[in-house]
Write a protein that binds this DNA or RNA. Structure first.
Length: 424
DNA sequence: TCTGGGGTCCTAGGACCC
DNA sequence: TCTGGGGTCCTAGGACCC
């Protein structure tokens, strides 16, 4: 059996933990640049506020209904997530951290234990230790645990816990779940299924397997098997190392000049290199992309991507930033209003491992330099101690893409200066 | 005026090998 | 007229997740 523990309205709940005046009040959290609504408290959902609504389209409505608005504060959410996951890790033999607000627990060996009772205990402890409310779904496969979790959230009277442990309870649950609500069935697939008259998870579980395999490939076949109670997705306790690391942003304002765009790209390249070093990875390829807003009129739209393979895999900010700048040169077209850019590192290899090929032409410019390695260590240490951006390349700048954040809450758990009034 | 960021997996098709 | 069989690697694009 698997349990899926999911934090309720996670970002909104994080804001509430440190601001009890928000209890009972509708709360929304906005995406970067205060663009869209990405989290809503129950009260906000009850007002009919949809996920993903652009803030500017509902500004009046939010004011009228006294909705508390927050810019996203990932330092806070990340830290609160770690607290929740630590708590869960102490309550179950093994845990897979699936996302910032969800974990699967392995309940193998719980035998005749009352799983519902266990779930209630878990929910109570997490609430007590962190202040975050959670919902818990339990089932014989991960996908069924997801189904159960969804019902636990949506059904009044379940008290945030739903256990699927018999043929009958599973069948009823699948009947009550729309096919679009199944984990792994997104918008496209659910639309296609609905067109064929398949509207519920139960209906999908009964479609001939050959059809599913042909039309929805291996991925769809696994979802179906899991709904039928056959576990195909194991608990992944150790997170597989990342295959790519991406740093990208939409800009807080219009960017038209190459130099300005270059500042943004350099900043993303450097931030990405920092992530590489933290992960202990080397990048083999660098991709740069940039473009206009997708809401721009068609003739004024431009979107471009360029990739290069490095002579040697690297995690060196100086080298990677130079590579990103060259790629930007190739893709930049004057005359457009750029609204987004990013840098993607892929072909990641473990640093210090034997997997990295050395360049045949090691004197060539752009290969490994031990002095740079030392410099990167020093930069990382300084930036860790005194805050990001304390030491950086001259080409980096926050200006072009400085995010709009008009409603950010204090970093209650990670930044003293946010919560202590400095006198004198 | 104003619309997020960061990932994964799978498949098809092209280039290339013997 | 008529032109094999078996494989790998890479990339782009489409689907999905939070």
């Amino acid at each position: 059996m698997f349990a899926l523990v999911d934090c309720n309205n996670f970002y909104a709940s994080c804001e509430r933990v440190f601001n009890p005046a928000l209890e009972q009040r509708p709360v929304v959290v906005l995406s970067n640049n205060d663009g869209c609504i990405i989290a809503r408290s129950e009260e906000a959902k009850a007002l009919g506020i949809e996920m993903g609504t652009p803030e500017f389209k509902c500004r009046e409505f939010l004011r009228e209904h006294n909705v508390a608005i927050f810019s996203s504060n990932y330092a806070l959410y990340g830290d609160m997530s770690a607290r929740v996951m630590t708590t869960l890790g102490e309550l179950a033999p093994s845990i897979e951290i699936y996302s910032i607000d969800e974990s699967f627990l392995d309940l193998t060996g719980f035998g005749r234990f009352d799983l519902e009772e266990f779930g209630r205990m878990v929910g109570k402890k997490v609430r007590q230790y962190t202040g975050i409310p959670v919902s818990i779904g339990i089932g014989p496969t991960k996908t069924l645990a997801k189904v159960a979790n969804r019902l636990a959230k949506k059904t009044a009277g379940y008290n945030g816990i739903c256990l699927l442990d018999s043929h009958k309870t599973i069948r009823e649950a699948l009947e009550r779940t729309p096919v679009s609500g199944v984990w792994g069935i997104g918008r496209r697939w659910s639309h296609r299924l609905e067109q064929r008259g398949i509207t519920t998870a139960l209906g999908f579980s009964q479609v001939p397997a050959t059809w599913v395999r042909k039309e929805m490939h291996l991925t769809g076949a696994k979802v179906q098997a899991e709904l039928q109670g056959q576990s195909c997705l194991p608990l992944e306790e150790v997170q597989p190392s990342k295959k790519s690391i991406c740093t990208s942003r939409s800009f807080g304002r219009n960017v038209r000049e190459r130099d300005e765009l270059a500042e943004a790209v350099s900043t993303f390249a450097a931030r990405g290199a920092e992530k590489l070093r933290k992960a202990g990875s080397l990048a083999s390829t660098v991709t740069v992309f940039a473009g206009t807003s997708p809401f721009e009129e068609p003739l004024r739209q431009y979107w471009a991507t360029r990739t290069l393979t490095l002579l040697e895999p690297s995690q060196d900010t100086i080298l990677l930033t130079a590579a990103a700048d060259r790629l930007l040169d190739e893709l930049f077209r004057p005359g457009y209003t750029y609204r987004k850019a990013g840098v993607l590192y892929s072909g990641l290899l473990p640093a210090g491992g034997s997997g990295a090929n050395l360049s045949l032409f090691s004197e060539t410019q752009g290969t490994r330099d031990p002095r740079h390695e030392k410099l990167m260590q020093v930069m990382d240490n300084l930036n860790r101690t005194y805050g990001r951006g304390t030491v950086r390349l001259a080409g980096e700048s926050m200006e072009a893409w400085k995010p709009v954040q008009e409603h950010r809450s204090p970093c209650y758990t990670t930044r003293w200066s946010d919560i202590i009034e400095v006198k004198g």
